[in-house]
Amino acid sequence: MDALFPDEVILQILARLPVKSLFRFKSVCKAWHKLPSDGYFTALYNKVSVKEQMLVAEVSYSSESKSSLICVDNLRGVSELSLEFVRDRVRIRASCNGLFCCSSIPEKGVYYVCNPSTRECRRLPKSRERPVTRFYPDGEATLVGLACDLDRNKFYVVMAGYHRSFGQRPDGSFICFVFDSETNKWRKFVSEQEDCCSFTHMSKNQVVFVNGKLHWLMSGLCYVLSLDVERDVWRKICLPDEIRCGEGGGGNRVYLLESDGFLSVVQISDRWMKIWKMREYESESWFVVDSVSLRCIKGLVPGIFPICQTGEYVLLATHKQVLVYQRRRKLWKEMFSVKGSSSLPLWFSAHAFRSTIVPCS
């Protein structure tokens, strides 16, 4: 009996399934059993999946000692996500293209990279250099970044900050450690960076990987700090003139996001949400792609934080809610709400997420 669809059509359909369903269907036939490890299919699957963004957040309840991870998908709604396969109590420090970089809560200096969709986990070796947990100003690295290259199935983990000797002030040297998944080793380089410690929790959390570089937004809104993970080169990228260095007034807040493979900033004022996109990376040319009225959610505006976006929608977190804004239909919708009292705001632990089958082991 002939197949109802050509093989390529079947692959296109399977490439649009959740990873969990894809693995469940491995038992259908030998050809489907091999798909998650087939180079052509995994490239196709990841190419399709990167077009969709989800939001993952840790929900902690003040009345209970436990917490849970929720995943908010614009198309499929809300589901729970588990990191129990890591076999350690961890918190997510960075997310990129389906992988999480997590730090161990009980054991400082221990980091993992895992894929919650495939339930693969890799514990990173400790650096032979000074412990990366002795950065200034807190007990952990000032910056943690994860760069996942889908084309080459490899990743980098970056930790950077001002190091100081015990009981001493930081000496101004900005130390960076980069882990390469291919070599399974850390490398270290030192540079002089001014004001790199001026990051808020959100600007450290929302690290963006585009053009082979990691990007963090400075809390003073003067520029974006980028790191070329291949060449170990730092660069400062100017923000649009309208928002640079806090210009514009009106209670402006700015967040760094990705938009379909491009660097983007979302500017929120009392009445408007303006979405900027970098047109030309080398010339640092920005343009406005959307201006959204916030009138219908006026009461939530002071506490909304954009977490991720596509050309179709923006996912935002508040203290207890996750909202989605449908850009073409110009509609707002509540996707998730915390029931009961939450000890931490949702935006405090929210990350952009994609479901991929990138190996990390």
Rank of each mutant, 00 (worst) to 15 (best):
W286N: 01
V59P: 01
L331N: 10
P106R: 02
S349G: 06
V78K: 11
C197K: 09
G220K: 14
M335L: 02
A31V: 11
S342A: 15
S191Y: 06
T133F: 14
F100E: 08
E312D: 15
Y325C: 01
G220T: 08
V56L: 14
E107P: 00
L81M: 15
N211K: 11
M273P: 07
V50S: 05
S49M: 04
S181M: 08
A3Q: 15
E230K: 02
D195E: 13
S269N: 13
L14Q: 00
M202V: 13
C29F: 08
S79W: 07
S62V: 05
G212S: 01
E8K: 07
V322Q: 13
C176D: 04
A15Q: 03
G212Q: 07
C222M: 03
N74Y: 09
W332E: 00
D88H: 03
E284H: 12
V254K: 03
C96T: 01
D241E: 15
H201N: 06
V314P: 09
A352F: 06
G340H: 01
V90T: 13
Y156V: 03
L4S: 11
I357A: 04
I10K: 01
K34C: 13
V233I: 14
L55K: 05
P18K: 11
D241T: 03
G145F: 07
L263N: 10
V56R: 02
L294P: 10
D195Y: 10
R253K: 15
F5W: 11
Y162N: 04
D73F: 12
I304N: 06
S269K: 04
M202P: 01
R24V: 07
Y156A: 05
P359C: 10
W332A: 02
D138G: 03
S355M: 12
F199W: 00
G250W: 09
V265N: 02
R24H: 02
V314W: 09
K66S: 13
E58P: 01
F166D: 14
L150F: 07
L316K: 02
R128M: 14
E129R: 11
Y325R: 07
V324W: 00
V190E: 09
G109I: 04
F189C: 09
I10N: 09
